[in-house]
Simulated scan of single mutants.
Amino acid sequence: MLEAFFVSTGIVALGEMGDKTQLLAVVLAATFRRPWPIVAGIFVATLANHALAGAVGGWVAYMLGPDVLRWVIGLSFLAMAVWVMIPDKLDDDDASGMRRWGVFGTTVIAFFLAEMGDKTQIATVALAARYPDVIQVVLGTTLGMMLANVPAVFLGDKIAAKVSMKWVHGLAALIFLVLGVLTLFNVGHFF
């Protein structure tokens, strides 16, 4: 089911724009000035974090049954539409104090922890509960994270100056809103 892959990729790529983990990517790039270990660390951390989130989403889908699940997912998507409009900021503690792990290790640890309870992790749980192919969801959300964060590593502040985060967040919110409404009204072939 490629739909799960493409929807997951798009939602997370848009939702990640201006997110604290994207800001973390910029900080790590500015601190270490070694982009490839940072990119590798982002990939490993995201894959591990989103695989865990996907497993939770799959379990939730199994446990709740289709009717309750439809309402939980629909309301979750509507909540994500609101949440994505709230800008993130990077806490100073998130990017400091871990130099002893090296560039790759610091990136893995920092990204994994920064993603815990983050919008994109919650979105991964909801998407994995909505779509039956959890692997496609995890691969899609991981690709979405990479699409948003790799340019941040290489281009840093230049991206933020040229892209309207308000517009990007609005588009992501609209997508979550549409998915929420479609889910609540049981439109589509997912349930």
Results as ranks from 00 to 15, higher is better:
residue 128 A to Q: 05
residue 76 S to W: 13
residue 153 V to M: 04
residue 86 I to H: 13
residue 61 A to G: 05
residue 82 V to F: 09
residue 56 V to A: 05
residue 61 A to D: 11
residue 158 K to D: 05
residue 157 D to V: 14
residue 140 G to C: 03
residue 134 V to E: 11
residue 51 A to G: 07
residue 95 A to C: 09
residue 55 A to I: 13
residue 49 N to C: 14
residue 61 A to W: 08
residue 133 D to Q: 12
residue 132 P to V: 04
residue 44 V to E: 02
residue 109 I to W: 12
residue 142 T to G: 08
residue 163 V to K: 10
residue 33 R to A: 13
residue 133 D to G: 08
residue 141 T to E: 07
residue 50 H to Y: 06
residue 70 R to T: 13
residue 97 G to V: 14
residue 59 W to L: 09
residue 89 K to N: 15
residue 126 A to I: 01
residue 44 V to M: 05
residue 67 D to N: 14
residue 77 F to S: 00
residue 53 A to Y: 01
residue 131 Y to V: 09
residue 53 A to L: 04
residue 89 K to H: 13
residue 100 R to V: 07
residue 36 W to K: 12
residue 91 D to C: 09
residue 55 A to N: 00
residue 80 M to L: 11
residue 35 P to Q: 14
residue 45 A to H: 05
residue 72 V to F: 12
residue 71 W to L: 15
residue 145 M to N: 14
residue 114 A to K: 03
residue 123 A to F: 02
residue 64 L to G: 04
residue 131 Y to A: 10
residue 134 V to H: 12
residue 137 V to T: 02
residue 119 K to C: 05
residue 55 A to W: 08
residue 52 L to I: 15
residue 57 G to H: 00
residue 66 P to L: 06
residue 143 L to E: 00
residue 52 L to E: 08
residue 115 E to D: 14
residue 88 D to M: 08
residue 158 K to L: 01
residue 105 G to E: 04
residue 100 R to E: 05
residue 126 A to S: 07
residue 108 V to A: 02
residue 52 L to Y: 07
residue 105 G to H: 01
residue 49 N to R: 15
residue 107 T to P: 03
residue 57 G to V: 02
residue 105 G to A: 08
residue 118 D to V: 03
residue 76 S to R: 13
residue 120 T to Q: 06
residue 106 T to H: 08
residue 133 D to R: 14
residue 148 A to R: 01
residue 145 M to K: 08
residue 151 P to R: 09
residue 56 V to F: 01
residue 123 A to I: 00
residue 105 G to W: 08
residue 75 L to D: 12
residue 38 I to D: 02
residue 95 A to M: 09
residue 151 P to A: 12
residue 55 A to K: 06
residue 160 A to M: 15
residue 50 H to T: 06
residue 54 G to T: 07
residue 56 V to S: 04
residue 65 G to D: 07
residue 110 A to W: 05
residue 61 A to Q: 10
residue 51 A to I: 04
residue 81 A to T: 00
residue 57 G to W: 01
residue 110 A to F: 00
residue 44 V to G: 06
residue 113 L to F: 04
residue 49 N to P: 11
residue 90 L to D: 10
residue 71 W to Q: 12
residue 85 M to P: 06
residue 57 G to M: 04
residue 159 I to G: 01
residue 79 A to H: 11
residue 44 V to H: 03
residue 96 S to Y: 15
residue 135 I to V: 15
residue 41 G to N: 05
residue 126 A to T: 06
residue 52 L to K: 09
residue 45 A to W: 07
residue 60 V to C: 03
residue 109 I to S: 12
residue 143 L to G: 02
residue 59 W to H: 08
residue 143 L to N: 04
residue 119 K to E: 12
residue 45 A to K: 10
residue 62 Y to T: 10
residue 138 V to I: 10
residue 68 V to A: 11
residue 103 V to Y: 00
residue 152 A to G: 06
residue 78 L to G: 02
residue 37 P to Y: 08
residue 52 L to N: 11
residue 106 T to V: 11
residue 49 N to F: 11
residue 114 A to W: 00
residue 151 P to Y: 12
residue 115 E to Q: 15
residue 109 I to Y: 13
residue 101 W to G: 00
residue 148 A to C: 04
residue 148 A to W: 05
residue 34 R to M: 13
residue 118 D to Q: 07
residue 126 A to C: 06
residue 84 V to D: 01
residue 104 F to M: 06
residue 56 V to H: 02
residue 83 W to D: 10
residue 65 G to H: 06
residue 69 L to G: 08
residue 154 F to K: 07
residue 40 A to K: 11
residue 40 A to S: 03
